[in-house]
Computed example of a mutant assay.
Amino acid sequence: MRAVLSVAVSASAIESPAPDGELPVSDSQTFRRAFQDLRDGFAQRELWLSLGWQDIKQRYRRSVIGPFWITIATGVQATAFGILYSALLDIPLQQFLPYVTVGLIVWNVISASILEGSEVFIANEGLIKQLPAPLSVHIYRLVWRQILLFTHNLLIYFVLLFAFGVWREITWTSIAVVPALALLALNAVWVSLLFGIIATRYRDIAPILSSLTLMLFVLTPIMWTTESLEAQGGEVAKRARIAELNPLFHYLDIVRAPMIGADQEAYHWYIVLTITVVGWALALFALRKYRSRVAYWV
């Protein structure tokens, strides 16, 4: 009886008008709640740090070398691409192989943010319905997992650093890789958040993103260089500039150039920073508007 009375009292309190004669407005769709979700999710870092590590251990359970299989696969793929395209583009292997390898390592983080990010809430349906945790926990878990895989793949980079003499090209400006990686992780959060919410509501988005990511992989200078195309002159050189319309090219450049000691233009950073601001604005709007509906969509 007391429970019924408490429910009735709370319902009447909700339906009763505010002192100024207006009905109280729920704050479930406010930016305050959106920011609170991000803060509360980050505060539960022990949870998503543990879950991200368990994801990797579960994937390679009963494996002798565990997650280093990813390192081996990336290394074999980079070696194959490097040998083939260095011959096709007439670029010395010792110069081209580090370029391709670092490009693939960074690309793995970018593509996972898009592809796995689009299914992050669908893949965690059970946890979302049973565990009262902020949505951002699943985003942080995904990004943390990709950081761990990126760290494993850095082993290939350090091998190339000394095997091909890349360390000779490293200067003090290479310290720019630190803010570049931080910016990449920051973008991975909003990409996974935005695409995760949209793809949860519209299930056709995930396969579309998969096809789009494959196309962007070909259009992004990973297995080829813009310099090699520009060196041919004429229409080919003009078409090489089209690569700059690909936003992923700029994300790739701000990380790869410092790691291999290559020259870099400042406009890459300006473009990435602009996309970061716009992307986070869209992600926050989506989180504010649809955060409470994700549990019903999964």
Rank of each mutant, 00 (worst) to 15 (best):
A188M: 09
L216E: 12
A185Y: 05
R201Q: 14
A182W: 05
L212S: 12
M223C: 14
T220R: 09
L219K: 04
I197W: 11
P221Y: 06
I205E: 09
D204A: 13
L216S: 12
W224R: 00
F195S: 12
A188Y: 05
L184H: 06
A185P: 04
A176C: 00
V177M: 03
T200P: 00
L181H: 02
T213C: 13
A180Q: 03
Y202V: 10
S228Y: 02
A206W: 00
R203Y: 06
M223S: 13
R201E: 14
F195A: 14
L216R: 11
I198A: 15
W224K: 00
W190T: 07
I208V: 14
P179Y: 00
V177P: 01
T220M: 12
V191M: 09
S192W: 07
N187V: 06
L181R: 02
D204L: 11
T220I: 10
A206H: 06
W224Y: 09
L181W: 03
L194C: 05
T226Q: 08
F195L: 13
L214Y: 15
A180E: 01
L212A: 10
S228Q: 06
A176Q: 04
M223E: 01
A199C: 07
V189W: 10
I205W: 06
S174M: 10
S228F: 00
L214K: 15
L219E: 05
L184R: 02
A176M: 03
L181I: 05
A180W: 00
A182R: 02
A182D: 01
L216M: 15
L216A: 14
I205Q: 10
P221F: 09
L194T: 09
M223A: 14
L214P: 13
L193S: 10
T200Q: 03
D204H: 10
G196M: 04
S228G: 01
S211Y: 13
G196T: 01
W190E: 01
P179V: 02
T226R: 12
M215V: 15
A176Y: 01
T220C: 11
Y202C: 03
R203M: 11
L194Q: 07
M215Q: 14
